[in-house]
Simulated assay, not measured.
Amino acid sequence: MDLKDHIRSIPDFPKPGILFYDISTLLAHADAWQVTMGRMAKAARAHQPDVIAGIESRGFLVAAPLALKLGCGFIMVRKKGKLPGATIKHTYDLEYGSDTVEIQEGAVEPGQRVILVDDLLATGGTFAASIELLRKVGAEVCAAACLIELAFLKGRERVDVPLHSLVSYDE
């Protein structure tokens, strides 16, 4: 099955000049979604993860069912101020300014094998920052995975663990 057939391209969203890859059409197609999760699980299983970490927010849509399919725990990597209780933060630079990602304190135990998951890899900044955050708490980030990779943005170069993408766009 060609998963690209189930991903809708929306021009000029959220602003002019941006081509948005909409996974809601993939999520709505039961067979395509089953195939997607099966392919993600096959790629992830080889790394023997203990925990799947999903990046806010569409990454949760992929990471949570993947964790369930693999029999792993699931944790959320969120923007600053979105998680209750004590958190561990990592601030990183953007092209214009900075941003912060965080996880809940105690969500990952030192030495646990973690796969980081999002729906899309663009420039790789959030992936790289999330990997650093997980390492800060002693996690062994053994891989990263995404549904869609915008290969022309070269985000893969910023991710220093094996990266699995199901669909790649070159322009």
Rank of each mutant, 00 (worst) to 15 (best):
I88V: 15
G85H: 08
T91W: 04
I7D: 02
D118F: 08
L70T: 04
L68A: 11
D160L: 04
F152G: 04
T126W: 07
G81M: 13
R113H: 11
D160W: 00
E102F: 12
H90E: 15
A44L: 07
A129W: 06
L163V: 03
G138K: 12
A43F: 05
A63Y: 03
T126M: 06
K154H: 15
G97C: 07
V141K: 06
A143V: 13
T25V: 09
P11N: 06
I7N: 04
A30F: 10
I131F: 01
H164N: 13
A139C: 13
D22C: 05
E132H: 10
G17D: 13
Y96N: 11
K82E: 11
M76T: 15
K4P: 07
V62S: 00
E171W: 07
A46C: 05
F20W: 10
R39I: 00
E105G: 02
V117Y: 03
Y21I: 00
L120V: 15
P49E: 13
W33V: 12
L61V: 13
I10K: 03
Y169E: 09
M37C: 03
L3P: 13
G111D: 12
D50M: 04
S168H: 12
L133E: 02
D12Q: 05
I88H: 13
Q48K: 15
P110W: 11
A143D: 12
V51K: 05
R58K: 10
V77S: 11
G85R: 07
G124S: 13
D93P: 00
S165F: 10
A44C: 13
L166S: 05
S130M: 01
T100L: 10
L94Q: 10
L3T: 13
G124N: 11
A128S: 15
A41W: 01
G38F: 00
H29V: 09
R135Q: 15
I148P: 01
E102D: 13
A67M: 01
A122M: 12
H29R: 14
K79I: 14
V159L: 01
I103Q: 10
D170G: 06
V137E: 08
G81Y: 13
R156W: 05
T100W: 09
V62Y: 07
C142E: 14
Q48M: 15
D50Y: 03
P65I: 01
Y92T: 10
L66K: 00
L26E: 03
